[in-house]
């Protein structure tokens, strides 16, 4: 495989500091999205972001989640539009992480999500989840309120058969919002009737 030009985390942080005239290690919101050329590798430099509550790395070419040790306050992790295949490397932030934004990636499994028990929001449109047995790992998230799941193969199939929302509501009856639209009692009742 050829290695094209890429931006390191160190340089992405420098770009952010120049753009916003700030010191990244003091900022609660650190925006490293859309680097040109893209970031390919997450590394330990991220651990210098001691005040970071919201880390954005979307619109890059990251293949693996890593380097989050030291981000002790991280609440929102934004990794949309990358090349991520697995939920890994999240143990260090599991106790603080509330929102995971990871749409437009290559996730076909949700292994690892069960450790992120404080999650309230998961945005994961346009991934590759194809089976309810995978989807059912969301049941391990007692605090999940909002889920974005459009554009997954499972969504596609069940939108066509028109039983998508009740299937989700039946599986996670405590979910408040699905794909931007509030889940209502009829959907929860319909889901319950499926006897999942």
């Amino acid at each position: 495989m050829t290695v094209g030009p890429q931006t390191s985390i160190k340089d992405a942080i420098k770009n952010f500091e120049t753009k916003w005239n700030c010191v990244a290690s003091e900022e609660s919101k650190v925006l490293l999205y859309g680097q040109l050329p893209p970031v390919v590798k997450m590394d330990n430099t991220l651990g210098t972001l001691k005040a970071c509550k919201h880390l954005s790395l979307s619109s890059n070419c990251i293949e693996k989640i890593a380097g989050l040790k030291g981000l002790e306050q991280l609440e929102v992790l934004s990794l949309g539009r990358n090349q991520i295949k697995k939920l890994e490397g999240l143990d260090d932030v599991a106790s603080t992480l509330k929102e995971l934004w990871i749409s437009y990636n290559l996730l076909d499994k949700l292994n690892g999500i069960e450790k992120l028990t404080n999650l309230t929001v998961v945005y994961m449109s346009n991934n590759l989840i194809a089976k309810w047995t995978e989807f059912d790992k969301f049941k391990e998230l007692p605090n999940i309120e909002e889920l974005l799941f459009v554009g997954n193969p499972l969504w596609e199939v069940h939108t066509k058969s028109d039983d998508y929302r009740i299937n989700v509501a039946g599986r996670i009856p405590w979910l408040k919002k699905l794909d931007g639209v509030p889940v209502d009692d009829d959907e929860r009742e319909g889901g319950k009737a499926l006897g999942l």
Binding site: Y33, G34, S58, S78, G80, R81, S103, Y123, G180, V181
Partner: peptide
């Protein structure tokens, strides 16, 4: 278009384009 359904993530993914 249901503009009420737009998320912060949608906006962040848009930013490299709108900028």
């Amino acid at each position: 278009f249901p503009k009420e359904n737009i998320t912060d993530e949608d906006c962040e993914l848009l930013t490299p384009y709108t900028d």
